[in-house]
């Protein structure tokens, strides 16, 4: 009896976490999915009414803006962060004596809350007193930089702040990748007389494909979940100009009292995340089982 109990200890230890994940992740997803098929408004209503919430969602101009913002923001944020991160990593890989200090400088934004980042950049890009004012003070009177209050440009302001925050992290990933390339391959290439830049473009960077994938996944994930940054930087405005699915969902859930819409928008967000993450995780886990 005691021995039977002893053998069950590992299962008993893991059980609470397992139950928590089942209920608070999968159960909650199911609950949200259920609600997304009802006419719930301020309170949940469990009567299934079909896809009406999704019809409303895709008909809403605000959601339309949010999705196209996500696309613009996500694409630019991911591409620029990756390019900048890779560039910084390669520059830092040139036997720089101050590498440690520079790395610290490039990466510290990742330690900040997105609320802090948003607050700082909101101030820096303040049209009256920020960069615009500064450049005008240097004598360029016609200089204009009012992206945060320009509905057409505000989303790009979010991109700047996002890239500032995340690109150092991409650099750290890539730098680790550069360092993990087999030294003997590089030595062999040097002996073959392959030029410095060709060693990077033809040998090192292609061998980092898995790191590109990881960086992409993390950045995409950050982009879809990004909520804090927009709230702090633009509050979703001007108007709804910088709304993202995350802010839309939040507004529906907590200020509009439209939990049907909140649920359906959350489900769409999850669909987007899973479309990106599931193939990745699947291949990761499968690779590990082999």
């Amino acid at each position: 009896m005691i021995e039977w109990f002893e053998r069950q200890i590992p299962k008993i230890v893991l059980a609470p976490s397992f139950m928590a994940v089942l209920v608070f992740v999968y159960g909650f997803i199911a609950w949200t999915a259920w609600i997304s098929f009802t006419r719930s408004k301020l309170l949940p209503n469990y009567e299934i009414k079909g896809v009406i919430q999704y019809e409303r969602l895709f008909a809403a101009p605000r959601w339309d803006t949010a999705m196209s913002n996500l696309f613009v923001f996500g694409t630019l944020f991911i591409v620029i962060s990756m390019l900048l991160g890779l560039l910084l990593a390669i520059l830092l890989d040139q036997k720089i004596r101050t590498e440690g200090a520079l790395r610290t400088i490039y990466l510290y934004p990742m330690a900040l809350s997105m609320i802090v980042t948003g607050t700082a950049w909101k101030w820096i890009m303040n049209p009256g007193l920020g960069i615009e004012n500064m450049v005008r003070g240097w004598g360029f009177e016609s200089f204009s930089f009012d992206w945060v209050i320009d509905p057409d440009m505000a989303i790009y302001a979010v991109v700047i702040a996002g890239v500032w925050q995340a690109s150092g992290f991409v650099m750290a990933l890539f730098l680790a990748g550069l360092r993990s390339v087999d030294e003997e391959i590089i030595k062999a290439a040097q002996i073959d007389g392959i030029p410095h830049w060709r060693i990077y473009s033809a040998i090192i960077i292609p061998s980092m494909a898995p790191i590109f994938l990881s960086a992409f996944i993390v950045l995409a994930h950050l982009a879809i979940k990004s909520f804090d940054l927009v709230i702090a930087l633009t509050g979703g405005g001007p108007g709804y100009a910088t709304d993202l699915p995350a802010t839309y969902m939040y507004a529906m859930a907590f200020s509009r009292g439209d939990i049907g819409q909140a649920a359906s928008s959350a489900m769409v967000m999850m669909g987007v995340v899973f479309a990106i993450v599931v193939p990745y995780l699947y291949s990761e886990l499968r690779a590990k089982h082999d």
């Binding site: 999968y26 979940k225 939040y250």
Partner: peptide, 24 residues
């Protein structure tokens, strides 16, 4: 055990918006 681990891992990647309402 591996299945449980995979389930937990997927849990890391959900957008938390999807659990906000039921958690409230």
């Amino acid at each position: 055990a591996n299945l449980i681990f995979s389930l937990m891992l997927f849990g890391c990647f959900i957008p938390f918006q999807v659990v906000l309402l039921p958690m409230a």
